[in-house]
Amino acid sequence: MADISYLDAWGMWLDGRSTLGHDLLGLPLLWWGRFGKILSFVSGATVVVDLVGPEKLSRYGERLARFMARKPSRNTFVVGLLTGGAVVLVAEPIGVPWPVEFVLGTTLGGAAGLLAFRLGSALQDPELPMATRWVSLGLFVLGFHFDLLAS
């Protein structure tokens, strides 16, 4: 597959030619489109926040903070292990080399384990619903962009 630049991809799209079968930054545009669809789906988090409500989210945050504080090192390890495993499961079918999978899984797994501590506090923040709406808008725009580019 031919590796094309970002501007070349948009040029092809604007000319009405398919970008599928080409690579962008070493990844097939088919996968960029799939990531776009996933980001667009995740942007629906606003709906979850609105349906659940800020009060319930705050209670969930208190529970998560207590859970993570109970046995911090073990719980952080479990969250990190689950996240790292998910990264490997997603990266394997794409054909990512195993050293890159290992680094991504370890890095993202460790970050997720540490962020679980912060998530408990964040869920208790009264500004969370508004911040979630803005983040969801950004994810939707980014996801739609890559989905459109790969069409």
Rank of each mutant, 00 (worst) to 15 (best):
residue 87 V to S: 01
residue 107 T to E: 08
residue 38 I to C: 10
residue 76 T to L: 12
residue 13 W to Y: 12
residue 24 L to M: 10
residue 55 E to N: 10
residue 143 G to V: 04
residue 21 G to C: 00
residue 75 N to F: 03
residue 94 I to F: 09
residue 31 W to C: 11
residue 138 G to K: 01
residue 19 T to K: 07
residue 8 D to F: 03
residue 94 I to A: 09
residue 8 D to H: 08
residue 81 L to A: 15
residue 56 K to L: 13
residue 150 A to M: 05
residue 94 I to E: 09
residue 10 W to Q: 08
residue 65 A to E: 11
residue 30 L to T: 15
residue 92 E to S: 14
residue 14 L to S: 13
residue 105 G to C: 02
residue 96 V to W: 09
residue 11 G to N: 12
residue 123 L to K: 00
residue 75 N to E: 01
residue 34 R to P: 03
residue 93 P to R: 05
residue 26 G to V: 01
residue 47 V to L: 15
residue 77 F to V: 11
residue 11 G to V: 01
residue 114 L to M: 10
residue 71 K to I: 04
residue 112 A to I: 04
residue 136 S to L: 00
residue 146 F to Q: 03
residue 87 V to F: 03
residue 99 P to V: 05
residue 101 E to W: 04
residue 87 V to E: 03
residue 139 L to P: 02
residue 74 R to F: 12
residue 120 G to H: 00
residue 100 V to N: 08
residue 1 M to G: 14
residue 48 V to Q: 10
residue 50 D to G: 14
residue 7 L to C: 12
residue 54 P to G: 15
residue 90 V to H: 06
residue 48 V to R: 07
residue 77 F to C: 07
residue 120 G to D: 01
residue 123 L to D: 00
residue 98 W to P: 10
residue 37 K to G: 14
residue 52 V to Q: 06
residue 140 F to G: 06
residue 139 L to K: 02
residue 148 L to I: 10
residue 136 S to K: 01
residue 36 G to Y: 05
residue 139 L to H: 06
residue 83 T to Q: 13
residue 20 L to S: 13
residue 119 L to M: 12
residue 80 G to V: 02
residue 50 D to K: 14
residue 90 V to T: 10
residue 47 V to C: 11
residue 148 L to A: 14
residue 42 V to C: 06
residue 69 A to Y: 00
residue 13 W to L: 13
residue 96 V to C: 07
residue 118 R to V: 07
residue 104 L to H: 02
residue 60 Y to H: 12
residue 14 L to Q: 15
residue 75 N to D: 05
residue 17 R to C: 03
residue 23 D to S: 14
residue 106 T to K: 12
residue 9 A to V: 09
residue 73 S to D: 14
residue 91 A to E: 15
residue 40 S to F: 09
residue 135 V to G: 00
residue 18 S to A: 10
residue 91 A to C: 13
residue 9 A to K: 08
residue 149 L to R: 09
residue 38 I to D: 09
residue 53 G to E: 04
residue 46 T to P: 02
residue 143 G to F: 00
residue 39 L to C: 09
residue 1 M to H: 11
residue 129 P to V: 02
residue 49 V to M: 09
residue 133 R to W: 01
residue 104 L to N: 04
residue 47 V to Y: 13
residue 10 W to A: 04
residue 66 R to P: 04
residue 30 L to I: 14
residue 82 L to M: 12
residue 138 G to C: 08
residue 44 G to A: 10
residue 78 V to Q: 07
residue 79 V to S: 04
residue 135 V to H: 01
residue 110 G to H: 00
residue 115 L to N: 12
residue 12 M to P: 05
residue 69 A to G: 05
residue 91 A to M: 13
residue 29 L to Y: 07
residue 130 M to H: 13
residue 37 K to E: 14
residue 5 S to R: 00
residue 35 F to A: 15
residue 81 L to P: 12
residue 78 V to N: 03
residue 116 A to D: 10
residue 89 L to G: 12
residue 82 L to D: 05
residue 135 V to R: 00
residue 83 T to V: 14
residue 132 T to G: 01
residue 70 R to N: 13
residue 72 P to Y: 02
residue 41 F to L: 15
residue 62 E to H: 07
residue 8 D to G: 01
residue 32 W to N: 06
residue 69 A to L: 06
residue 143 G to M: 04
